[in-house]
Structure formats: structure tokens, C-alpha cells
Design a protein around this nucleic acid. Structure first.
Lengths: 343, 343
DNA sequence: CCCAGCAGTGTTATCGCTAACAACAACGAC
DNA sequence: GTCGTTGTTGTTAGCGATAACACTGCTGGG
């Protein structure tokens, strides 16, 4: 009595056996056609394809994942923020991974502490993802990755430059040094720095590159103004700097900080770039329309995304080596926020 | 000879039967413990939990999905952009969906044309996701959704306000009208508008709200300057407006356009807000640090994300009705870019 | 002329889980 | 005491795919 009158049939999705029956072959042959196996007669292949088309058959990924023991899913862990760098990178990676035939599963964490990152990674492992990408720009986040068994394919992005394993980063020091030299070359005696949060590798690297460039040039190294990445904190730091007449050049750790500094300078009546020069970092799309247009440093996020995938894929296929780093050198973009110092 | 000497065993992940054997029960009992079935003796439950812990057992989601016929995955379709609105919404949704126990799979499309959206939705259906969310802010994107069978759980965000089905949007007209009235109330005779791309519902809604507010107030309706969402296009529009002395108030369709306009006005020597007042839309985090700080309209993206999930979940569970809309009213944020007109 | 080798196809077992039902003990109601 | 009821557990049968192997005809080299 099961499966008799057509009216009673529940709307079950067609499975491989349904295709097989319609095409007059075994389900294994259907599987072979689907997976591009060579030993299938052309005529058979066409018959199977026609049957697939006619039934609107979609292979069941869960069944495939079960029997093969692997999924086509890449798990990503990222912070719940709209910071330009991480967002751009994430979007670019999602696009690249899709193009490579992977599904991208994103897990956002509210904070970049060790426990949150660990939980997010464990979540992905529960899902038996093929590989994991973690945007791990802080020490706490990076530490969490040390707990992950070495045999699971994992790439850290923006992580600790000193870490083992696969890593993609931007050469923060080179970018910061370029920005600093650009200001020194314009004639400034020294360059002040408003940094990002101290626990971010990006921020630390930029501080380091800035300091190194100053020392190399024999310039005095002024104290760092610590901030977070926001325009608001840049504004607060800027209010201090605006009051100090000896400040003629500022390197901000990102463009939004630079915007806040710009705002503070303007409020205080210090003209940019006539009295104070400013350089940012990131090259957000709006940077060219700040007042004045901001000179900044541009990392290539698309390249970072591509590199991430290139490190991850061999690891997924079991051909990846242990430790491997990809370091991208950012590029200085000169606009109108830098000039010679007054006097 | 299979499964004999311990040294030979390949590293297979523990399965339910392994847990069962260790706990001295059947695998079905393990399943019951895992799924919180009530009829399990407390002592048995503890024994099973201990065995799970000892083996580091993780349930195989693929096997579960195969037998139950449903996954815990929500598929999202979004454009490959870092536009503030969509990015914020996406991040907020990912967080909310994770909290509700779902995995979020993101598919980015390069362009919002019909074919791309359709392909992305089909991709998610291939994966047999439990539900789909599409950020569909253009007519072409929205049209693609009409092809999707009504029985699959789908929520459109930022889609056509006229569409059937589940939809979450911001009340663009109310926001635009509030911005326009704010400028009229400051004493301006009329308000000029720099719009977003015409094929975006957001842009069209803002134009409509602006026009309606002007007409209601009996003010003249000047021609619209069409732009895309970028600061660059705002700058170009601003260059035109800056040359026209009769322009004393501008409502920009988003904050980045406003920034470009601000830049153009400044270059032309037209002071904001003394000579020209400007209002934006979105309240990007930096808006408060533009020169001058930008008066703008803030949508609540967290609320939109929550609403999206609230519309989607009942549809996944089969208890969702046909057409249902959630409309969020944005809020005016007054800063310093608006003043009375000169003279 | 026989048989190894290969192309093309089918058969069977299996992945790890849940659903459905069967089995059995303990219990109180009649 | 018999019986249904309830709680607890085990057994069996799939879900829909791939892997491994078996089977059929041909082909061609000796």
C-alpha cells in the first residue's frame, strides 16, 4: 500500500535513485556522471543529464558529506564590527571562496577574547568544516589558535607575525615607515603618532614601523597617543596635540583616527596641512574627500583574501606544509594633507 | 583481522556507537541524551555524558541532516560591498542568528542583477539551507525573488516595499521627510537633494519622502542630482550645487555623499553651515567628526537584524504566514551641519 | 583461438544518525 | 491475579550518497 496512488505521495525531493530509474541506469552511474567520472558512455551521460534536468534533481550534500567524511564548507571567525579593514577582507574572502566552490560559514564574535575565539572555532569544528579562517588581530585571539590541533586546516589573518602556522598579514611596519618617512621628507623635524589599541598586532606593528623610521632618520621619538580605532578617540587625541605648537606632523594609525584628529585641529584653528600635516592608514573610500583629502597608506585586501585562500586550500587537501606566511606590502597614497612645516 | 591491534587503527573520529559502547548502553540512548529526550534515567544520562566527555565525541551534523531532512543553516545573499548599511545589517544578523543556534552561510554577489541573485539563491537551495535571507535593495534583485517557490522560507531585506512575502525595511520616506523638515524648520526656503542610484529602493524612498515633505510645506521642488552612494559622486554633485547661490540646504541620500558635498562646498569657499546646510543619512560612526559634524538620520540596523530573524524563524518552522512586513522608523540626529540660511 | 586487460555498468556495504516500534520491568486498578 | 499503563531501553530500518568490487562484452597480443 505504500507508494501507490499518485495523489497520496508526499512531496519528497527526488533522490539519485529516482534519476537512475528515469534514465534506466543504476544510481551508481548517476553518481559517476555527477562526479565527472571518465568511464561513462557519452550516450548514457546525456540520458542521465536529461533525467536530472527533468526531475529538477539536486544532490544531497549532507549524504555526500556523510559518506566522504568531508564538507565543502570554510568556517570564518570574525569580530562583530564594521571596521573597514576586517570588513573588506571578509567580503573579499567570501567572494574568492565562493568562486573556488566553497561555502563560507561566518561566525561573529562580540569580543576578541580567547574564550570567544575558542568557542567560535569549536563551533566550526562541530560542523566539520573543511577549513577555518580566523581574523585574529589581537594577542588574545591569536593565543586561542594555539589550542587548535595542528592537523586541522587553519589560516590566521592579521595574527601574530611571530606565530607558527599559516598566516596572512599586511606589513604594518613597512606601511608605517613609509608614512613616517613621507612626513619627514616633507621637512618635518619629527612625527607624532596616534596609535590603535595596544593589544592589536596592527597597532603595535605601526607603532614599531613609525618608531624605527624616526630612529633611522635620527629624529626625536615623541610619546605615543594611545587610542582605539574610532574617530571619537582620534578626536580626543587630536585635542591634546592641537594645543601643542611643536606638533607639525601626525601619523594616525587609521583613517578614522585621522578624521577625528583633523576635526580637532580644525576646531582649534590649526590649519591642515599648512600648520599640521596628517597621514592615515587604510585608504577608506571616503579618505579622498576628507577636508583636506587625506594622504594615507593602502593595503590590498583583495590580495590578502586571495592569499588566505591559497594558503588554506593545500591544507584542506592535505598537501600544506607547517608554517607559512604571506606578507603584503601596502602602498602610500599621497593626497593633500601633507605639506612642509610652517616657518 | 579488522580492528585488532591498537597500533593499526586509523584515527577515526568517535561516533555514537563508540560512546554507547563505553557507556554500556545502545546508541539510541546516546541519541536520546543528546536530544534531551525526557525518558532517560538520570544515572544513565550521566554515564552517557561522561563517555561523551571522555571520547571528545562530536555529533556528526551531516548524518543528522541526512536523516532528519533539515539543516540548521541560514543562507544569506549580499552584495560584495562595504557600504555601511548592508555591512552593518549583515554583521548584526550573523550575530543574532548564531545566538539562535543557526549557522550562517554567506554568498556574496558581485552585482545585484537578477541572474546573480537567482544563482546565489539556487546555490543556497542546493545546500538545502533551512532558510534564506536576501539583501535585495534593487528592483532587479527583488524580481529574482519572485521566481523562488513560495514554500521555501525567505526574507527580503531592504527590498521592494510593494512586494508580497516577508520583508524588513527602513522607512526611508519618514527618514527623508524628517531630514527635509529639519532643514525647512531652520528657515530654508527649499531643500535640494542628492540622491542614491535610482534603481535602489532606499534611494527612491528617500527621494519620495523628500519631495513629499517639500510639497506638504508648499516649498518649491528643485531638480534631483542623481549620484551613486560614493563620496566621489557626492563631490561631483556638490561641485554643481556649490556654484548655485540659491542652494542653501542640501539633503544627501547618505553620509558619504554628504561628505563629498561638504568637500566640494569647502573647496568652493561656501561655508557649512553658515552658507549651506547639509543633512545626511545612515549615521556612520565618523559622521560626528566630519567638518562640521554632520546632522543625519540613523536607522537601527540591530533592530532590522532581529526583525529579520523573527520573520524567518516561524517560516522555517512552518508556522509563518504569507506576506508580512517589518518597517523600522529611523531617527534624526542633529549635529552642526544645519543652521539658518544666510541673509 | 585463448585469455589478459579495459571500458562500461551494476551490486552491495557503509557512513552516523534518528524514527518507529518492540521489549520488558514495575506499578496500580479492577 | 490479570491487565493496561508508564518509564526505560534496545532493535531495526532507513536517509542518500560514495567506495569497493563484481560482472559483462570487446579488444588485441601471443
Amino acid at each position: 500500500m505504500e507508494n501507490t496512488s499518485s495523489a497520496v505521495r508526499a512531496a519528497r525531493e527526488p533522490a539519485m535513485t529516482d534519476v537512475a530509474r528515469l534514465a534506466g541506469v543504476s544510481h551508481q552511474t548517476v553518481s559517476r556522471v555527477l562526479n565527472g567520472h571518465p568511464n561513462v558512455r557519452e550516450q548514457t551521460r546525456l540520458r542521465v543529464r536529461a533525467a536530472i534536468e527533468e526531475l529538477g534533481y539536486r544532490p544531497n550534500r549532507a549524504a555526500r558529506a556523510l559518506v566522504t567524511g568531508r564538507s565543502q564548507i570554510i568556517g570564518v571567525v570574525a569580530q562583530n564590527s564594521t571596521l573597514y579593514g576586517p570588513s573588506s577582507l571578509l567580503a573579499a574572502f567570501e567572494l574568492a571562496a565562493s568562486a573556488a566552490g566553497f561555502v563560507v560559514s561566518v561566525r561573529r564574535v562580540r569580543h576578541l577574547d580567547r574564550a570567544s575565539i575558542t568557542a567560535a572555532v569549536e563551533h566550526h569544528r562541530d560542523q566539520r568544516v573543511a577549513g577555518i579562517v580566523v581574523i585574529a588581530p589581537t594577542a588574545a585571539a591569536d593565543e586561542a589558535l594555539a589550542e587548535v590541533p595542528a592537523d586541522i586546516p587553519l589560516v590566521a589573518v592579521d595574527g601574530d607575525p611571530e606565530r607558527g602556522g599559516a598566516l596572512v598579514t599586511v606589513d604594518q611596519e613597512a606601511g608605517a615607515a613609509a608614512a613616517t618617512r613621507h612626513l619627514l621628507d616633507a621637512g618635518h623635524e619629527t612625527v607624532w603618532h596616534v596609535s590603535g589599541p595596544a593589544d592589536w598586532f596592527d597597532a603595535a606593528g605601526r607603532v614599531h614601523g613609525w618608531r624605527h623610521a624616526l630612529e633611522t632618520a635620527g629624529a626625536e621619538v615623541p610619546p605615543v597617543s594611545a587610542a582605539d580605532w574610532s574617530a571619537a578617540s582620534g578626536y580626543r587625541a587630536g585635542q591634546m596635540l592641537a594645543r601643542m605648537p611643536e606638533v607639525t606632523a601626525v601619523f594616525a594609525a587609521n583613517d578614522h583616527l585621522a578624521l577625528g584628529i583633523l576635526r580637532a585641529m580644525t576646531e582649534r584653528g590649526r590649519r591642515v596641512p599648512d600648520e599640521v600635516s596628517i597621514v592615515g592608514f587604510d585608504d577608506v573610500p571616503e579618505a579622498a574627500y576628507f577636508t583636506p583629502p587625506l594622504t594615507t597608506v593602502r593595503p590590498d585586501f583583495d590580495a590578502a583574501a586571495t592569499d588566505t585562500l591559497e594558503l588554506l586550500l593545500p591544507r584542506i587537501n592535505g598537501t600544506g606544509s607547517g608554517s607559512e606566511h604571506r606578507v603584503l606590502t601596502p602602498e602610500l597614497v599621497a593626497r593633500s594633507s601633507v605639506a612642509a612645516p610652517p616657518g
